[in-house]
Amino acid sequence: MQTLSGQKKITINQSDKSKSIEAFYQNGRLLQTNSFVRGHNSFHESIDDFQAFSLRLKWHTNSSKLWEQVYNNPEYGIGFFMGNFDHSPELGNPIAVYGFFSSPIFKTNNFSINYDAGFGLTFNWESFELGQNANNIAIGAEQSVYIDLGLKLKYQLSENWSIGAGVSFTHFSNGALKKPNMGINTLAPKLLLSYDIIRNQKNIINDKIPPFQPKNNLSVSSYFGLKNVLYEGNDVDTTVANKGVYYPIYGLSNVIERQLTYKSKIGLGMTFGYFGAANSILTAKNGKLIKNNASLKDGFEISIFPSYELLVCKVSLVIQPGLYIYRRKYENQTPRFYQRIGLKYNFWSKYFVGINLHAYNFYVSDYIEWHIGCCF
């Protein structure tokens, strides 16, 4: 880890960092991104309204590390989320556990503007099921991913109390691990109240952050995923049809990157992949589903993409909009232009693992990629 010039030597343990409890309430709207929320449900009404409550435990960084200074002493922690929708009998009342990161864009002694990012797992959905909840094409499983992005204004009322307001976009999806999975998307304002249970102002003082020296690298990773396909016939049990089958997805991704700052990398990449569901025929025999994976020739794909990576300590947010430049035609083919967004964790200096959501039309999940790779 690069050190800082002019650094005052103060030993700070994790227990020395300030800790807060924060609660926020939201009341907003569902984005009408699929037919289920637009009214194709048992109530024959659009699902418009959404409200939620969240409780967070957060730690305040204190400039003891370079990345903390680069991000202007951000906050991070864990949160518990409870949501409620119109027509909850068909959707359920989701509960999420998530980690979050919040960094100031602008701040004074008592006021700050911050951006928030949260990522976790959601439970307690009433998911799609043939014969019982067949209208719910939005959520295909009882579990999903929770992704939350937002902005907030925060004001320090007193030594320990803060209030604030903001807005956030929240996406619920299982990454198409279980179909159908059109997802739930919400946009909602929020009000928050925060209390510092441990307040410590012991910060390391630095003359300045050292200039960053740009550098180049080649990132190479292999990935694996699964594509869920449901059976549309009526000659098998509904449980079997609802489960469907899983086709393999795997490949190799290569990115030539240049790290411009402590925070950002840009690059250009190419993926060579295999899509097992291409031109595959799903049939049934004796109550069981029979799949035939695509041949290597039929399933082979090549795509190119620009890449952006936001670096926060050892964790990175990866954004890669891509374009297929070669693949064979097959039925129900997704658009040539796709979007990949994910998280990457760096370890042992040059190795990393990651998880990416592969989507199209900017909101429809196609499948999840699990990556392991190395930087040269």
Results as ranks from 00 to 15, higher is better:
Asp16Gly: 09
Gln2Tyr: 07
Ile249Asn: 01
Glu126Asn: 15
Lys154Cys: 04
Tyr324Asp: 02
Arg199Gln: 15
Gln26Ile: 01
Phe128Leu: 08
Asn13Arg: 13
Gly373Pro: 04
Val236Met: 12
Glu309Gln: 07
Ser264Glu: 05
Asn114Tyr: 07
Phe101Gln: 14
Gly99Ala: 14
Ser102Asp: 14
Arg29Ile: 13
Val312Trp: 07
Ala117Phe: 15
Leu268His: 02
Tyr247Asp: 01
Ile197Met: 10
Phe337Gln: 10
Ala96Asp: 06
Leu177Pro: 00
Gly299Pro: 05
Ile209Val: 07
Phe305Glu: 04
Asn279Glu: 14
Ala138Asn: 04
Ser103Cys: 14
Phe300Pro: 08
Gln213His: 09
Asp16Arg: 13
Thr186Ile: 14
Ser158Pro: 00
Tyr338Thr: 04
Ile368Asp: 01
Leu311His: 12
Thr33Ala: 11
Leu282Gly: 04
Glu126Tyr: 08
Ala23Gln: 05
Tyr155Gln: 04
Asn93Ile: 07
Val145Trp: 10
Pro335Gly: 05
Asn216Glu: 05
Lys243Cys: 06
Asn114Met: 14
Ile147Leu: 15
Ala165His: 00
Val245Leu: 10
Gly267Leu: 02
Phe119Glu: 05
Asn332Lys: 05
Ile266Ala: 07
Arg29Glu: 13
Glu309His: 04
Arg56His: 11
Lys202Ser: 15
Pro94Tyr: 02
Tyr274His: 11
Pro189Tyr: 11
Asn27Glu: 10
Val240Gln: 06
Gln143Val: 03
Val70Ala: 05
Phe275His: 09
Leu177Val: 02
Thr170Arg: 09
Val167Met: 13
Ile372Gly: 09
Phe224Val: 12
Tyr367Met: 01
Gln7Phe: 00
Val353Phe: 07
Arg328Met: 13
Lys291Asn: 08
Asn110Leu: 10
Phe169Thr: 10
Gln213Ala: 08
Asp207Leu: 05
Val312Thr: 13
Val245Gly: 02
Ile10His: 04
Lys178Phe: 02
Ile266Arg: 00
Ile209Asp: 02
Asp148His: 13
Phe352Arg: 08
Lys350Gly: 00
Asn34Tyr: 04
Asn206Trp: 06
Tyr115Pro: 07
Ile21Cys: 02
Ala96Leu: 09
Asn84Ser: 14
Glu257Phe: 01
Gly175Leu: 08
Ala134His: 11
Trp370Gly: 06
Asp196Tyr: 14
Phe106Gln: 13
Phe119Asp: 08
Leu296His: 07
Val245Ile: 14
Val245Thr: 09
Leu91Ile: 15
Ser162Val: 00
Gly354Ala: 10
Pro104Arg: 12
Ser46Glu: 13
Gly118Glu: 07
Leu311Met: 09
His171Ala: 11
Ile198His: 15
Val312Tyr: 08
Leu66Cys: 02
Leu343Phe: 13
Ser127Trp: 04
Gly99Cys: 08
Asn93Glu: 12
Asp196Phe: 11
Val236Ser: 09
Phe119Thr: 03
Lys291Gly: 05
Glu22Ile: 04
Leu343Glu: 00
Asn279Phe: 01
Tyr367Lys: 01
Leu230Pro: 03
Phe212Ala: 03
Ser253Trp: 00
Tyr324Cys: 01
Lys9Val: 09
Ile137Thr: 10
Thr239Glu: 14
Val145Ser: 11
Ala96Pro: 06
Asn216Arg: 08
Leu260His: 12
Gly276Met: 07
Gln14Ser: 13
Ile47Glu: 04
Gly175Arg: 03
Ala176Asn: 03
His40Gly: 00
Val220Trp: 00
Asn293Glu: 14
Pro335His: 06
Gln132Val: 15
Gly251Leu: 05
